[in-house]
Design a protein around this nucleic acid. Structure first.
Lengths: 336, 336
DNA sequence: ATGAAAGCGCTAACAC
DNA sequence: GTGTTAGCGCTTTCAT
């Protein structure tokens, strides 16, 4: 039905090899031959069949990108930038969602079929990198947002501890002393949250403040609605604070609503920082100061390392940090 | 390197055919043989190679999902539900982003390679369905959110006109009379926006109100920030309204900010409705009343039709509507 | 119920 | 510079 390489070869009166050379822009083809073949290709409307090519080369041109849920704005952002970077390298991206559960992550990682993708970029929610490294040995994996065990896995992340210190110091610079932390998981705190809380506590201690565990406000899951519920419940229970460092923008957005609903003013009564610098931060009222990871660098370095491994590099796991910045907006304005 | 079907066959002392039968759960295999082969598979850790299988069967098990940008919450939602429905049918989803441009859509649709995906679900931003139908004839396509020309393309959408009437009538029921519409594109209104504006105007006319073109507030692009700018500028220019039907939730979120920033109160001064019922509507302050398309039905019907075509159905294009509802929240509460 | 062999569409040695 | 041919890993008639 579809026109094949052989059809073009027959039509142009040349061999498959020559047509293949033209299709793949192989340099050593005479101009007139190239033109003749190209005409045949155009007239027949030939399109190379990926599967045939992939079988022959062993490369699929496909990458898997795995994370909890695209509906979480940070992951949508990640999908966008990874897809862009992949495209620049001639690759396409297969979305794999894990729902943030261990089963989901296991399912994604222990693929029952092989040869679909050449590599995988994964931001695990719960699985540790040791298990990760053991599950999928047939293709290279780059881990995002978590320091991978130094086996064959590479990792890229921002320095969560440092970034949390920066955010917290910024709140301190506003003269706030009772600073809460919101949005980490209620059950089984993830590594990401642990690191951010560590940075938050370090900054407090550096300022001579003893971290008060009551000021840690966990929420059920990473949604803004849960963030609102958690912060709302804390306020209703009488908890008071004048600064709030949030685990992510969703928690911050939820906190914003919980506070306003109860008559607290941001930033006058409570200074707030978010994390991820997702598009929504610009348009909440007040807009949100947020930690902005360099997403482009993140995706770019992750794919660099992934392709090095696809190309055969076989050294120890490499662990890279990418830059971040604090973008100040109304919820915690810049301080002179 | 990787273990192949032949390796398993050798190891188990049977033919490839038998192993293949076991792998694919072919019914006519004797239990003892099945067990023997299964043990070989387990011991060798055999995983069938997708590409080999696909080449042989002609099915890739992959679907393309194309739309403007995953960072737009509605599309993230769409990606999520389509991925889920596809998985239930044993398929995976390849993300294709068009950036909402004609070039982007053309690039996605006029794939230079064939055989990668078995079908495509696309929500076009600018390309009309006639061009769509002509561009990609090798695989079936289902169009979302736009009434496809009745060639070989199927389409699924909500009744945009009717939904816009429902939203507008709800605002009218609040006793509002100067009702604006916000968030449609400034340049080259999309078909979606056109339909929604039509429904909005119909509802006004039914209520005996002559639609005032000044109350149409376009914005530069579908982001909340642009929505805020557009509505803000309109207010600053002296435009006044007591109701606002928004093209989508992003526009509504932007409008919310623009209004609050200028001291207008929602819903007291202005009643607002959004569209898409994205997660953020729950947690804005005030929360947003929004048109909620039945996303599950949308994805489910789209994939049903797509698979019918993949399986050989070759009739005229079918055009289906899926249900929607109006979810009332604080920005436009339910009216008794 | 199981085996043998012919492809699926393409690339890559290797020859000419 | 171009043609020949042998796979890539799997499924699938067709035999047995």
């Amino acid at each position: 039905m579809a026109v094949r390489l052989q059809d073009v070869a027959d039509y142009a009166g040349v061999s498959m090899k020559t047509v293949s050379n033209v299709v793949r822009d192989y340099p050593h083809v005479s101009p007139k031959m190239r033109e003749r073949v190209q005409r045949a290709i155009d007239e027949l409307g030939y399109r190379p069949n990926i599967m045939g090519r992939r079988l022959a080369t062993g490369r699929t041109g496909l990458l898997a990108l795995a994370f909890a849920d695209v509906r979480i704005p940070y992951f949508a952002e990640l999908a966008q930038v990874v897809a862009n970077e992949a495209e620049r390298r001639g690759y396409r991206v297969l979305l794999e969602q894990t729902e943030g559960t261990l089963e989901g992550e296991r399912a994604v990682v222990s693929a029952s079929e092989s040869g679909l993708v050449d590599g995988m970029v994964i931001q695990p929610s719960v699985m540790n990198s040791t298990e990760l490294a053991q599950s999928r040995t047939d293709i290279p994996i780059v881990v995002l947002g978590e320091n991978a065990a130094p086996l064959t896995l590479d990792s890229v992340m921002v320095d969560n501890v440092e970034a949390a210190r920066v955010a917290t110091r910024h709140v301190l610079a506003h003269g706030r002393r009772r600073i809460a932390f919101a949005g980490h998981e209620e059950t089984g705190t993830t590594r990401t949250s642990t690191l951010r809380i560590a940075g938050y506590q370090q900054a407090l201690e550096e300022a001579g403040i003893i971290p008060d565990p009551h000021l840690l406000i966990p929420s059920l899951a990473v949604t803004a609605a849960n963030g609102a519920r958690a912060v709302g419940a804390a306020l209703d229970a009488g908890l008071r604070f004048d600064g709030l460092v949030c685990r992510d923008d969703l928690a911050a957005i939820g906190a914003l609503r919980a506070l306003e609903e109860r008559g607290f003013r941001v930033p006058d009564d409570v200074v707030i920082t978010g994390w991820d610098n997702t598009p929504m931060t610009e348009v909440t009222y007040p807009s949100l100061t947020s930690i902005a990871p360099d997403m482009r660098a993140l995706a770019s370095r992750a794919l660099d390392m992934l392709f090095e491994r696809i190309d055969g590099y076989d050294g120890m796991g490499r662990h890279e940090l990418v830059p971040f910045s604090l973008v100040t907006r109304e919820s915690a304005p810049a301080v002179e």
